[in-house]
């Protein structure tokens, strides 16, 4: 990674959005980059404001539990220079190694899958319109995902991959959030369905590439008992021609 590339990682680093390896690499870079260090400091101060905005009143008894624990906990001495105690040991103290999730908890929140490959020099106009579409979808999805009555159903897909079906009766919307969709041959696609009164009603197509993303279902979930996913020939089918690889119930309204 070039130095310029590294410098753009200040934001991701400040938000703990790097992998462990990248984070350690960037921390080494920080030691030699006062400008980056200053920027990370400011971005962390900024992020702290997001925490303040999320403040909640702790439940009864919480203060007492914390205060009761404190006298039992031995305090660490200050670091003395030469003890090798700069950012590195502090980082070790703060961090525990963690396995990455195949499907992170964040998968249930906010997503767009329009394959917005924001790829450089060509197709600028097309890119711009795709980004606009992406932003529009991101906005609908965000609204759905934070809806007060949003319900989530996690499930694996037969044949590979995992998914979360997010639904809100109040908004009349359902999203299919997926991760690790297996590639399909011969132009076949994934088709989404509502199950209404025992009949499968088409609700949109999902391309197997890219394998991760989210799709708002077409049409209203009103009267639907569940959502299904099948593999269909290119262009989709008016009714399922294969066994569903996922059937997820929707909460009854």
């Amino acid at each position: 990674m070039t130095t310029a590339d590294l410098h753009t990682l200040t934001g991701a680093y400040a938000l703990h959005a790097l992998s462990d390896r990248e984070s350690e690499e960037f921390a080494r870079h920080l030691a030699a980059c006062p400008a980056c260090t200053q920027e990370v400091r400011e971005l962390r101060e900024t992020a702290a404001r997001l925490a303040l905005a999320a403040a909640e009143t702790p439940p009864a008894g919480f203060r007492e539990r914390v205060m009761a624990a404190v006298p039992e906990v031995r305090q660490l001495p200050p670091l003395v220079p030469g003890q090798g105690g700069s950012g590195r040991s502090r980082r070790r103290m703060w961090r525990r190694r963690m396995p990455q999730l195949a499907l992170a908890a964040c998968l249930v929140v906010a997503a767009v899958a329009v394959g917005t490959t924001v790829d450089a020099e060509h197709q600028l106009a097309q890119q711009r319109s795709r980004t606009a579409t992406a932003e529009q979808q991101a906005s609908s999805l965000s609204r759905l995902l934070v809806a007060p009555d949003a319900a989530f159903h996690n499930g694996g897909l037969t044949g590979g991959g995992s998914s979360t079906v997010v639904s809100s009766a109040r908004l009349g919307q359902v999203a299919f959030v997926y991760h690790g969709l297996p590639a399909l041959t011969g132009g076949r696609v994934y088709e989404l369905w509502y199950s209404k009164g025992g009949v499968m009603v088409p609700a949109g197509l999902v391309s197997p590439s890219p394998p991760n993303g989210a799709k708002l279902l077409n049409g209203s979930p009103s009267g639907a008992a569940g959502v299904g996913v099948t593999v269909e020939p290119a262009g989709g089918s008016p009714r399922p021609t294969t066994t569903p690889i996922l059937l997820a119930p929707l909460p009854s309204a």
Binding site: A12, H16, A17, L18, S19, Q100, A104, A105, C106, L107, V109, A110, A111, V112, A113, V114, G115, T116, V118, A134, A138, V177, H179, P210, N212, G213, A214
Partner: peptide, 14 residues
Amino acid sequence: RGCTYQETADLLGA
């Protein structure tokens, strides 16, 4: 949500 930038990119299709 604690997403890595990789996960964020997947989710946003970016």
